[in-house]
């Protein structure tokens, strides 16, 4: 796990690591990846992945409106909003 790889995954995850912590993070990630790397010794030829213990596809619901308009409730938790929208810094100049 070199600095460049850590920089790439930080970008993908939209995270920034403080300079003084970067060496420790790199070493921790190396240790954890080595742990996960141990899986390669298990023979999984012809084994289907088990993505959920239930092995069932998500249940589908009828496409009906079943709750009130909760706009105000949800906007209330936003750090910045007006009466109708979540607000973000200007995207288009």
């Amino acid at each position: 796990m070199d600095q460049e790889t850590v920089r790439t995954i930080c970008h993908l995850a939209r995270l920034k690591i403080d300079d003084e912590k970067s060496e420790k993070i790199e070493s921790d990630l190396d240790t954890i990846i080595a742990l996960i790397g141990g899986l390669s010794s298990f023979d999984t030829s012809n084994i289907e992945p088990l993505y959920s213990p239930l092995e069932q596809t998500a249940v589908k619901h009828e496409d009906v409106v079943n709750s009130d308009n909760c706009k105000d409730k949800y906007l209330a938790n936003s750090p910045l909003s007006n009466d109708d929208y979540f607000l973000v810094p200007r995207v288009v100049e």
Binding site: I36, L39, S40, F42, T44, I47, P49, L50, P53
Partner: peptide
């Protein structure tokens, strides 16, 4: 494939 899918395959072995 090497990490995520492999782990889910091993998960089936464990189950």
């Amino acid at each position: 494939d090497a990490y995520y899918k492999k782990a889910q395959q091993v998960r089936r072995l464990i189950k």
